[in-house]
């Protein structure tokens, strides 16, 4: 497979080299690039403004346009933002890591059962899970709050972890079921023949062969939990307030301190950005090649 791709790439290159550019092709290319650059500017300008503003002093924010680079670069904004966001960031980190790990773990087990084993009401379970992913959180907010209160987990990091684990699980299951369906049944049968039970097969065959899927789903969960506000607002209370809420409060309390707000936004966005950059290299497919005949 990989060889084929490599070969077809070579072939493509060989072709592009051979085609002599004609004048109207060149004009067309220039037009393409102009359009693309226009879109790039359109998309990047707000981000650019955010970055520039975050490095300005408070007084400069008032006197210059957002897209102008600061005359005097400063980390003042970041320092103030961190003062407010430090503790909430830790909360967010804990909630995100444990919440994502929990939901991926449960989702993975559910997905394994649903995709690789036949049991009664298999389909009913799956449909229920899909339905759960469409559940509007607003609709269950009050009972949820009462439940969390009853469990004495209000204003508690672990309360948020629990909620995110439970509510992330259906989505993780649905996503992972798709990936697990690609693990050939022949491998599962072979592992059984080789003397392995249901859990050994999960541990030794399914999980090691779907690492990329797990990472992808994990990153997806991390992003959505990290950026989540509704549960954070309702269940987070004061002591275990996640960073999204704290950032929002920055905007509310310190009106017009745009440098601090922008710095806070960037701090909040950074982990997600880094995660995506590192994930890129895992998104190479072809994990299963060599397992079974192509027929």
């Amino acid at each position: 497979m990989q060889n084929d791709i490599a070969r077809s790439k070579e072939a493509q290159q060989a072709q592009t080299v051979r085609v002599k550019p004609r004048w109207h092709m060149t004009v067309l290319h220039i037009v393409y690039y102009l359009i693309m650059i226009a879109f790039l500017v359109f998309y990047m300008l707000p981000f650019w403004g955010t970055v520039m503003t975050s490095f300005k002093t408070n007084s400069e924010v008032m006197t210059t346009t957002p897209i102008m680079p600061p005359r005097q670069w400063t980390l003042e904004g970041y320092a103030s933002a961190m003062e407010e966001l430090g503790q909430p960031l830790m909360t967010s980190l804990l909630v995100t890591l444990f919440g994502a790990a929990g939901s991926v773990f449960l989702g993975s087990i559910c997905a394994y059962g649903l995709s690789k084993w036949k049991f009664r009401f298999n389909n009913v379970f799956f449909i229920a899970l899909v339905a759960a992913t469409y559940l509007p959180f607003q609709a269950i907010l009050i009972p949820l709050l009462q439940t969390i209160n009853a469990l004495d987990l209000y204003d508690n990091v672990w309360g948020l972890v629990l909620v995110h684990t439970v509510f992330g699980m259906p989505m993780c299951t649905v996503m992972m079921r798709g990936y697990y369906a690609d693990v050939p049944d022949a491998l599962i049968r072979q592992a059984m023949i080789d003397g392995n039970g249901v859990w050994q097969i999960y541990r030794k065959i399914v999980v090691p062969n779907t690492k990329i899927a797990t990472i992808t789903v994990f990153v997806f969960q991390c992003t959505s939990i990290w950026n989540e506000m509704l549960f954070a607002l309702v269940l987070g209370g004061y002591d275990s307030k996640p960073a999204t809420i704290a950032l929002n409060e920055l905007a509310g309390t310190m009106a017009a301190e745009f440098n601090v707000q922008m710095a806070g936004s960037l701090i909040l966005a950074l982990p997600v950005l880094v995660l995506y950059i590192f994930m890129g290299k895992y998104l190479i497919s072809g994990q299963m090649s060599g397992a079974v005949t192509a027929s």
């Binding site: 050939p184 022949a186 491998l187 049968r189 072979q190 592992a191 023949i193 065959i205 090691p208 062969n209 994990q287 299963m288 090649s289 060599g290 397992a291 079974v292 005949t293 027929s295």
Partner: peptide
């Protein structure tokens, strides 16, 4: 058992 599809563990 040897399966018609080989079923080698890719990992």
């Amino acid at each position: 058992m040897v399966f018609q599809e080989y079923a080698l563990y890719p990992n």
